[in-house]
């Protein structure tokens, strides 16, 4: 972003990479896939790089309002300094926090989840997708809580999957009733309380019950949780866990 600024120009959109997308090995692949798609569609974009800091979501959900607001205020300062208008991110937690919780602290932007952004690109004809790679394949979509229930977006990812001409199969609980992967509310960073099962296993079982070939996710945390679930069930060779952006990026570029 700093470079754009120095050149006195501004990109079409700021890509908010997020902590998982920056540091976690599985999630970095999602980041790269998304960047590849942005480049394919000739979208001019910038990232904050070292100027980006945690959105504060896990701190807020853990109950630390103070730390959250420190993070948020710092980020808002940076974003406002660059006069950022439009933000896209592949992490529903960052998406939700920046979209819904930054405005009260002085940061108002147009914020899109990457599946929404990609869907627009395809609909505007800027991004073409090959319909052969996944034609007829069974794909199920796991709704991230912070995209679905928290922000009522159930359609964008599904619309992309349908555009791939894949067969979209739904799990027992989906959309409004979608079952959490178990990572939200800062659970990602701690062990689960005592119970008789892990949440991600329960969800993976629901996904496997659909006989799907691919479990599509729209969140780096869900992705990890479900991947762990599939690994636990020893189904890695049969069922892939992929972000919607990875699905699109794997199609041949036209």
């Amino acid at each position: 972003m700093a470079e754009w600024n120095q050149a006195g120009k501004s990109p079409e959109v700021l890509f908010w990479v997020g902590c998982a997308g920056s540091f976690d090995d599985r999630s970095k692949k999602i980041t790269k896939a998304f960047v590849e798609l942005l480049q394919r569609a000739n979208v001019s974009f910038a990232v904050l790089g070292p100027e980006e800091s945690c959105s504060g979501d896990p701190a807020k959900r853990a109950g630390n309002e103070f730390l959250f607001q420190m993070q948020a205020s710092t980020n808002i300062k940076t974003l406002n300094r660059y006069s950022v208008k439009k933000i896209v991110t592949a992490c529903p937690h960052c998406f939700n926090t920046i979209k819904n919780e930054y405005p009260q602290l002085g940061g108002t932007y147009e914020v899109l989840h990457h599946t929404q952004f990609l869907n627009h690109l395809v609909e505007e004809g800027r991004l073409e997708i090959d319909e052969n790679t996944y034609k007829g394949k069974k794909i199920t979509f796991h709704d991230p809580c912070y995209l679905g229930r928290a922000n009522n977006e159930y359609n964008a990812p599904r619309s992309l999957i349908t555009k791939l001409k894949a067969e979209l199969v739904e799990m027992k609980s989906c959309k409004e009733k979608g079952l959490c992967c178990g990572a939200g509310g800062a659970q990602m960073f701690k062990d689960a309380e005592k119970g008789n099962k892990e949440v991600n296993i329960e969800r993976t079982e629901q996904a496997l019950d659909t006989n799907t070939e691919v479990i599509a996710a729209g969140c780096p945390f869900c992705n990890t949780m479900l991947h762990d679930g599939v690994k636990n069930k020893e189904k890695e060779s049969k069922v892939a866990v992929m972000d919607v952006a990875q699905l699109l990026a794997q199609t041949e570029s036209l």
Binding site: S22, F23, K28, F189
Partner: peptide, 29 residues
């Protein structure tokens, strides 16, 4: 808070991410 969450929050405080990575490395990917 549970200890692991305290560790997570300390990380955010010190290096701007819930994991112990350096903020300067955010572009490494």
């Amino acid at each position: 808070a549970p200890t692991e969450l305290n560790a997570m929050m300390t990380n955010i405080e010190n290096n701007g991410a819930p994991w112990p990575f350096n903020q300067q490395d955010r572009l490494k990917w």
